[in-house]
Design a protein around this nucleic acid. Sequence first.
DNA 1: AGCAGACGTGGAAACGTTTACAAGGCCTCG
DNA 2: CGAGGCCTTGTAAACGTTTCCACGTCTGCT
Lengths: 348, 348
Amino acid sequence: MKQRATITDVARRAGVSVASASRALNGLSASAATVERVRTAAGDLGYIPDATARALKMGRTLQLSFAVDDIGNPVYVEMMKAVQSVVTVPGYRLMISSTGDADDTIDLLRSLSKGYADGMILSPLRVTDRLVEEVRAAPVPVVVIGRLPEGSGVDTVMTDSARGVGIAVDHLVETGRRRIGFVNGPLDTTPGRARQHGFEATAERLGDRHGPAVAAADFTVAAGYDAARTLLAGHGAPGGTGPGPHALDAVVAANDLLAIGVMHAAHDAGVRVPDDLAVVGMDDTELARVFQPSLTSVSLGSGERGTRAAELLLARLADPQREATTVVVPPALHVRHSTRPPHGRDTP
Amino acid sequence: MKQRATITDVARRAGVSVASASRALNGLSASAATVERVRTAAGDLGYIPDATARALKMGRTLQLSFAVDDIGNPVYVEMMKAVQSVVTVPGYRLMISSTGDADDTIDLLRSLSKGYADGMILSPLRVTDRLVEEVRAAPVPVVVIGRLPEGSGVDTVMTDSARGVGIAVDHLVETGRRRIGFVNGPLDTTPGRARQHGFEATAERLGDRHGPAVAAADFTVAAGYDAARTLLAGHGAPGGTGPGPHALDAVVAANDLLAIGVMHAAHDAGVRVPDDLAVVGMDDTELARVFQPSLTSVSLGSGERGTRAAELLLARLADPQREATTVVVPPALHVRHSTRPPHGRDTP
DNA sequence: AGCAGACGTGGAAACGTTTACAAGGCCTCG
DNA sequence: CGAGGCCTTGTAAACGTTTCCACGTCTGCT
């Protein structure tokens, strides 16, 4: 088998024109006899239609692109898995692009003009006006996972991570915590800002339970560790000012990775989790389930966001005229060991 | 901007033929004047060459495919990142396929005949003769990450995970452990078998330090937990036959995920890690670094394997005639807390 | 029996590129 | 001064498909 068979070969072997062969193979109008002969000819030759030629002619590649800032983050992996499993059903292939910074993302959006994909799902960490502009100008449908300015006219799936922070805080209050701090990610990111607002919004109803907030340099374990150290040092970890009335006894982290960092810092400072310090994370990654002590975490539905984004994209591909849709995936709290009440029963 | 500009538009605007336009843009023979005019025309029109048309004509898509059994596993994510960063340099795009089972993989290999990719990197969990057959028959170069039968004539990058197990065992012996068990993954997988051999190979030099081995149902935390429970229950965890001379005091896991499962099982059984039980994992994922206690793990160079595989693929694409190469990435031990000697100094 | 319509078929164009080939112009060298 | 060669250019074919259009044939209805 030196050369791949083309539809011309099939047609010749079946004794019909290429047009008929194409129709027969694609289920268009063709007599039963023709279909039969073309089918067997194709079978004999092991004919497989060329994706490139077909793409050129039909104007659709059957390829989609998924672009995220950091594919190393388990959240995005989960999204990707979800997207993958949705889009493969109608036969799309999935391309992955990890975009380091905002400029990369713009370049990527521009590169869509090469026509290698029929659409894109984009989950940017930093949303700028310029980015929105480019998304709108993209030659193929783009759905964005993340929070966009109102009325951008872009298909979007987002979560209410501000409310997610609120849920986490409420849970801590309900389980008897007295002073709650916040370890956020970088404030120049969209999720970072949203979560900051979420934390600040709890200030009024918390009163003096509302503790300090600190922004880590990154959404990573290491950054969380560093941030937590300053937080704990400044605000009454044992060995500091002592566990007085103003000592932190709970921390909300904007991210599971940050939360793990917080737990490390606590451990190194001799602060016990959950007895001395409750920790709650966000994203509800597998890490949260697996860590010891297991981490209470606010799920932002990463898998579902992926699924919904994929569905949105497919819907738009099917009907380019449909109105831009925004889907909101609600946050949900998953309680685990890291927030077990200090004097409560031992519920695993 | 309703319609994307084609090279015909550019040629017309520049007042030259499409052939000249193409040559000018691609740096083939063309006068300075022509190049200048074509360049500006292209610039004015925002011309971007169509990837599909180019692919059809040139016979190369500039796309590569990366296929793994379970993209949920952090090891593969790391590989993917490495592959991505290598192949984007010469301008390749990367497609991801998560193949559930062996049949999926075969289908995927077959689908390469559609011509949507110039090559593939494949990391299968189960290598069968049929798979090797299909890899050989693939219409584009395929590089396999994993252990293939000798003389398959396929570009391969592998690691010596049997030796990796040996290294882990030696480390446990050196740090004073008396009886070492093994929690493996499924034995019908290629890494599972290799690691089993690795463990068995230590039997002679260990004597009665060589403990029992058990195979988990899967390379996951949950499976590791289940497997470890039977192992610990059967072989002298506290509460069982008591920590007699035959009690396990160390476990090698074939995987970081399994190792985490083991640590959970130990925790639930009241066995302390590392004091009562040393645990060492494999793959040296971020999980190992981040877990508490941090997990000693044998790195199998997942990132490097990805890099090398990508390089191998690029080399083959550049020279299809070159001889099939096998690259071996050596395992390396990363010592952390989970194997700290019981009576040793407290070295963090 | 005649005609409209349906249906199957083949030829050819088209998708947007690259490239083989031939031809023209100019320069250089004999 | 003429021939050969190089450089540039344009025409046209090609990559492998799908699809428009026109043409025939057959069916069924009046």
